[in-house]
């Protein structure tokens, strides 16, 4: 299979086929809600939509998002090859309606119509010492991206200091402010430390963890679990209609910071959490969720 075709199929799968761990989390959320509530009706519609999209091979959500690629490639390989294949695949996927054209020039207001533009699709390159290639893809909707945010600790208005307690407070505040606007129930990716840019990068990378996959360090894993419980006590519910599930999971990671700065970046993924992975090993192409 040509690289472009393999990436085209990756795009199709990501846009139309929700990963099973996300679907299971949504099913559990459906079961938790009381009969006759708007929340129950929302989850029912969501699950029906997920099934239809898979069957029809049409986008789960019309906002097929920003195309964010993470590529791990072997030594000796060249980035240019991937850039070219991704641009071609994105254009073709747009023509085939797997993707909505989502690349807009902010100065002229003109949509490129192809999902290709300046720095779009966005590609993170990482060279590794394996011989295989791994291409991970996130399709991340604009509505959920808009409720993402970054805090600088200490935060006087929230009485949030430079510790885990302070981190917990700003996360609760962010989910409260998001209400249903990011298409709740959301999944949170939290990046602690780093600079303005790297804290957001770390927060987004958390979205490659599977539902229920806890941080290896006990202290962080406990914070993830307790926040999951507490955030679901807010009662915001699916679409902000009120209900028992406001978040599907909370993923946290950290990195070292400058002594003067303390950032907490919070990325919010909508319930239509679209991620897929493509691996090319010895010329063999395989896909995973």
């Amino acid at each position: 299979m040509e690289l472009k075709d393999a990436i085209l199929e990756l795009l199709r799968r990501a846009a139309t086929d929700l990963p099973p761990d996300i679907e299971n989390a949504l099913k559990k959320a459906y079961e938790r809600e009381d009969e006759g509530t708007p929340a129950k009706a929302v989850f029912k519609t969501i699950l029906k939509n997920v099934e239809l999209a898979r069957k029809q091979s049409t986008p789960i959500c019309q906002d097929t998002g920003s195309l964010i690629f993470y590529i791990d490639f072997p030594i000796g390989d060249e980035e240019q090859k991937y850039r070219k294949a991704i641009a071609e695949a994105a254009e073709e996927a747009t023509k085939k309606q797997y993707l909505r054209p989502n690349a807009v020039n902010p100065i002229t207001g003109k949509n490129s119509g192809t999902n290709v533009g300046i720095n779009h699709p966005y590609i993170h390159f990482h060279q590794w010492d394996k011989s295989e290639v791994r291409i991970r893809l996130l399709l991340k909707g604009g509505g959920s991206e808009n409720v993402g945010t970054q805090y600088k600790l200490p935060d006087a208005s929230l009485k949030a200091g430079r510790d885990l307690k302070g981190i917990r407070k700003v996360i609760i505040d962010a989910v409260l402010k998001a209400q249903g606007k990011g298409c709740s129930p959301g999944t949170l990716g939290i990046g602690i430390g780093g600079d303005r840019v790297t804290s957001y990068i770390l927060s987004k990378e958390q979205f490659f963890r599977k539902m229920g996959e806890r941080h290896p360090e006990k202290e962080i894993a406990e914070l993830e679990l307790s926040l999951y419980e507490e955030l679901n006590q807010l009662g915001i519910g699916p679409m902000g209609f009120g209900g028992k599930t406001t978040v599907l999971d909370v993923f946290i990671d950290y990195q070292h910071r400058h002594p003067a700065t303390f950032y907490v970046a919070i990325s919010y993924n909508c319930w239509a959490f679209r991620r897929k992975t493509l691996t090319i090993k010895n010329g063999e192409v395989s896909y995973d969720d």
Binding site: L52, Q56, T58, D63, G141, M239, A272
Partner: peptide, 10 residues
């Protein structure tokens, strides 16, 4: 229902 793109298109 946000995200229910296929169902609504139908």
């Amino acid at each position: 229902v946000g995200g229910a793109g296929t169902l609504i298109a139908n």
